[in-house]
Design a protein around this nucleic acid. Structure first.
Length: 270
DNA sequence: ATGTGACCCTGGATGC
DNA sequence: TGCATCCAGGGTCACA
């Protein structure tokens, strides 16, 4: 469900309300999501203040000074701030109480995760292998080109590979390639420098525009305050099979790559 | 090493 | 109405 923009919008919403606030309660309603939930989390965070919330790819890192709570939203996860007396719904799996406010994890499909990390989070196995942060200055055409060298897989699944660049999921991969005018089926290792020089800014612009619009709500995603994203209304290709390209009017096509839906314009993307 | 498909799980949409 | 099938913002694993 959530890609980098949705995770970032969640981070911003939570950070504005929770930074510096002290935890007073932890409630677990299930033993595990993708991984077992940290049973001792209460002992680790109660009476501790949340210092900051960071993001690496699609992972959120809640810094409590003595360690980090890592949360991944999987396909259908969301984090909301609710009032303490609000009763939990089905699939509300755990709460972290901050006085009158409660941070509540909701995830119908349970592909999400929450782990307690001690030490440097960057060295954790889930984070250690991750590729470039797309919104950082370090993510350049040269860096992307180096990561794609020798790869025969198509460019669309390649930019969804978190070992190459993080945070670009199924929606924003299609959207970025349309913005760059690149055929999603092209072999990743054969993109000429001029194409890489279009693709990198296209990824950055797509992700930034999505963050400004509050992310994409296709199905489950909601903001920390419960609101929906708006970016889905501006999708160029994702979910628009058969509809006219906003640039040239040709019907948007749908194909499958690595078992995921890819949308593209056969005229604008070569 | 690299790339693809099955799988984890629930729920909504679609078709018979 | 009921049931079967397919699909979904992700990531990991087994296997060619």
């Amino acid at each position: 469900m959530p890609e980098l923009p949705e995770v970032e919008v969640t981070r911003l919403g939570l950070a504005a309300c929770l930074t510096g606030e002290k935890v007073d309660q932890v409630t677990m309603r299930v033993p595990a999501l993708r991984y077992p939930l940290p049973a001792a989390l209460s002992d680790r965070v109660v009476r501790r203040a949340l210092r900051q919330i960071r993001r690496r790819g699609k992972y959120l890192l809640f810094d409590f000074g003595t360690g980090h709570l890592l949360i991944h939203l999987g396909m259908s996860g969301s984090l909301r701030l609710v009032e303490r007396n609000e009763p939990p719904l089905r699939h509300d799996h755990f709460d972290i109480g901050f006085g009158s406010k409660v941070l509540r994890m909701h995830d119908p499909r349970r592909f999400g995760a929450a782990l307690w990390l001690e030490g440097d989070p960057a060295t954790h196995p889930l984070l250690a292998h991750l590729g470039a942060e797309p919104l950082s200055r370090q993510f350049t055409p040269r860096v992307l080109g180096a990561a794609l060298t020798g790869r025969t897989m198509a460019i669309k699944p390649a930019i969804m590979d978190a070992g190459i660049v993080v945070g670009v999921g199924n929606i924003y991969a299609s959207e970025s390639l349309h913005r760059a005018g690149i055929d999603p089926r092209l072999p990743a290792g054969q993109l000429a420098p001029a194409r890489l020089a279009r693709l990198v800014p296209a990824i950055k612009l797509t992700l930034r525009a999505a963050i400004r619009a509050g992310g994409s709500t296709v199905r489950d995603y909601v903001h920390a305050n419960g609101g929906s994203g708006e970016f889905q209304q501006r999708h160029r290709v994702y979910g628009r099979a058969g509809q006219p390209c906003r640039q040239c009017g040709a019907p948007i096509r749908l194909l499958r790559q690595a078992n995921r839906a890819t949308y593209y314009c056969p005229r604008c993307q070569r």
